[in-house]
Design a protein around this nucleic acid. Structure first.
Lengths: 337, 337
DNA sequence: GAAACGCCCGCAAACGTTTGCGTAGATAAA
DNA sequence: TTTATCTACGCAAACGTTTGCGGGCGTTTC
C-alpha cells in the first residue's frame, strides 16, 4: 500500500497537497468543512508528518541538543528531567550527547552540531576543556546556546548557574564552625569558572576565619574514581592534621568516604566532610552526608525555558538573561561536632 | 554571505552539485584530484551536510530513540551511558524520551515516533502500562525496536533482560538463609513481565524452603516515594512479624530504609533488606545495602548493538536475538545475621 | 450593471541532498 | 577508421513538506 503522506491524503480526498497541508495547520484559508474531512482521514490513516521534510523546508527542527559530561550523576540526571519536561510541553525533541569530561569528544560533538541539526543547545562543558575555540565555532554557526552549571564565560550568551562563590564560602565556614582547622578542598577542574568560584569562596572563608590558605591541601581530581580515592588517601596519610574535607563535586565526596573507610578515619569524629551533591540518599549514608545541594531540576527547567523562548522568538540569547539560582546547605551528621 | 551547502561548494569549484556530493562520499566515479579539491574547500568553509535533507532523501535518519521511565535512576542512567557509547561510535544520534511511568505520556511519545523520526527504538515500558495497543501500532509503523529490562512480551522483537526469576529466587533464599521467616515483597507493577518473574522467583524460594506464600505481604508501590514509605510503614506496623524485605526495585529499597528509620526498626537486627539496585553508594549506606545488581551498562550496550546491527542490515529484529544477562548478588550488612 | 472584495483552493517553486541515467572525451581493441 | 570500453562528470528527478501567488466563484457596494 502507498505510504501515508500529504499526497496520499490529497488523492483520496480529491484535494491538492497544498490544501491538505493548510488544513492540518488549521489555516484560515481552508473551509471548516474541508478541514474536518482532512482531519478525519488523517486520523483514520494515522498520518504522521515527515519531520525531516518539514524541518528541511522550514529550517527549523523542533529539536534541542543537550551536551553534558555524564548522565550517571544526580545533578545532570535531575537537570535532564527538567529539560525534558519543558521541551516536551513545547513539542520539542531532546538529543543527548555525553562528553565523559573528555575534550576530544566535546569537540567532535560540537562539530556534529554545527550542521543545523538542532535549533538550540544546552551545554555544560567538560572539565578537561581548556580551549574554547570549538565552542566559538559552534556559536558562530548560529544555534541558540544556553550554558548551565559548567559555563563557558567566553561566549556572550545566557548562563544558568548557582551561587557558587557563596556556596563554597558557606561549606567552608560550616566546617570551620564545626571545629575544623585544616580543611582540604577537592575539586575537579581549576579552569572551569564554576570551580574557581567555589575555590574563591573556600579561600575567603578561610581568610575571614583567620585560617591561612594552604594550596597543598587542594586536590584536583579527574574522571577516574579509583585513582581519586588513592590520591585522597595519600593526602590524608601525608597530612594527618587534615580534619575537614570540602568536596566541590559529588563523586569526590563519595571517594572521600571510601578513603576514610579504608584508612579507618572516623567521620565526623576525626574528619568532617561536606560535599556538593544531589544524592537523594545522602541522608541514608553512613554517616549521613552534609551536602550543598543545587536545585538541579530547576536549573534544567530554567535553562530550557530561556532557550525555547529565544528560539520561538528567533532572538539571540543575551548574557543579560543569565540566571543565578541558590544552592542549599543540608547539615547532617558528617559535619556534626 | 551565502550559506555553505553543496551548491555553494559546486559554484566555487566550477563543478556540479552531483560531483561534489559524490566526492564527499568518496565515490569511485570522481577523480582523486577532484576529490582532493572538494575536500579542501569543504574543510576550509567548514561545510556540514544538512542532516534533514539527507535524511529526507535517503529515508534514514541516523538517529535512535530511547524511551524510558526516568533518567534519575542508576539503572537507566547507566544503561544510557552504554547506549550513547555504541551509538556515538556508529555515528548515530540519540533522542531521549521520559515517560515518568505514565501511560498517557508513553502513548503520546509513541505517537510522535511513528513519524519516521528515528531509525530504531530502545524501550523500557512504563510500569503503568497495561494496554499495549500503542506499542502494536508503533511496531507496525516499521522502526526497529528492541526492548530492554521492562519488556513488552506481546511484540515479536528482540529483548534484553536479566535473569529475573533466578534473581528473585536468590534474593529471597538469601534472606531465608539469613534467618528471615516472614519476608515482604515490594514491587512496582504486577503486569510487567519482569515483575512477574521476580515474584515467581520469590514464591519458588519460599516454597522450596518450606515457607508459605502470603499475598498480604506483597506490596505494590508506585511513582510516589513518600506514599510508598507510608505504605511500607503501615505494613510493618500491622505485621510486626515481618523480618525481611525484598524490594524488587531500587526506590522501594530506599523507602524501606526510610520507613525502618522512622519506626526505629534496626537493620539488619530486626529486619533485613535486600533490593534490586545499581546504586554506586550501596556500600556506603547505613547499613550497607545488600543488592541484586543488574549489569545496566552492558544491557544498554547490548540492546543498542542489536538495534544498530538490525538497522544497518535493514533486517527485522527477531525474538531469537534476545539476550539474558546475569545479575549479581552483593551481600552486605543489611542482610547480616 | 460593473467593480470590488472575500473565501477557498490549486500551481509550482523551494529547502539540500542523493542517485539513475546520459554523455563527452580519452583510450583500447578490432 | 570504426567500434567498444572506461573514466569522470553533469542533468534532472525525487524525497515530503511549506508557502507565495494567482484565480475562480459568489457576495457586496456604489
Amino acid at each position: 500500500m502507498p505510504p501515508v503522506n500529504l499526497k496520499r491524503l490529497a488523492q483520496e480526498l480529491n484535494l491538492s497537497i497544498a490544501t491538505v497541508s493548510r488544513a492540518l495547520q488549521d489555516s484560515y484559508e481552508v473551509s471548516a468543512h474541508t478541514k474536518e474531512r482532512v482531519r478525519a482521514l488523517a486520523a483514520e490513516l494515522n498520518y504522521q508528518p515527515n519531520a525531516y521534510a518539514s524541518s528541511l523546508r522550514r529550517n527549523v527542527s523542533k529539536t534541542i541538543g543537550v551536551v553534558i559530561p555524564e548522565v550517571n550523576n544526580h545533578f545532570f540526571s535531575l537537570a535532564i528531567n527538567g529539560i525534558e519536561e519543558v521541551a516536551r510541553q513545547s513539542g520539542y525533541h531532546v538529543l543527548i550527547y555525553l562528553t565523559h569530561d573528555d575534550y576530544e569528544r566535546e569537540v567532535g560533538i560540537t562539530q556534529y552540531l554545527t550542521g543545523g541539526r538542532v535549533d538550540g543547545l544546552l551545554m555544560s562543558v567538560a572539565s578537561e576543556s581548556r580551549e574554547f575555540e570549538h565552542l566559538q565555532k559552534l556559536y558562530a554557526s548560529k544555534p541558540a546556546i544556553v550554558f548551565f552549571d559548567r559555563v563557558c564565560e567566553a561566549l556572550p550568551t545566557a548562563k544558568v548557574t548557582t551561587n557558587d562563590y557563596e556556596s563554597g564560602y558557606l561549606a567552608t565556614a560550616h566546617l570551620i564552625e564545626a571545629g575544623c582547622r585544616h580543611i582540604a578542598h577537592l575539586l575537579v577542574s581549576g579552569n572551569l569558572s564554576i570551580g574557581r568560584m567555589r575555590m574563591q569562596g573556600y579561600q575567603a572563608a578561610l581568610r575571614e576565619h583567620g585560617l591561612e590558605f594552604d594550596e597543598t591541601l587542594v586536590l584536583t581530581g579527574d574522571a577516574d574514581d579509583e585513582r581519586n580515592k588513592e590520591r585522597i588517601m595519600d593526602l590524608l596519610r601525608t597530612r594527618p592534621e587534615v580534619d575537614g574535607i570540602f568536596a566541590s563535586v559529588e563523586r569526590l565526596a563519595l571517594s572521600s568516604y571510601q578513603a576514610c573507610k579504608e584508612l579507618g578515619r572516623a567521620i565526623p569524629e576525626q574528619i568532617k566532610v561536606v560535599g556538593f551533591s544531589n544524592l537523594g540518599v545522602a541522608s541514608l549514608l553512613d554517616p549521613a552526608l552534609t551536602t550543598i545541594t543545587q536545585p538541579a531540576y530547576d536549573i534544567g527547567r530554567q535553562a530550557a525555558t530561556i532557550l525555547l523562548r529565544a528560539i520561538e522568538k528567533k532572538k539571540a540569547i543575551l548574557p543579560s538573561q543569565s540566571v543565578v539560582l541558590k544552592s542549599e546547605l543540608f547539615a547532617r551528621r558528617s559535619t556534626a561536632r
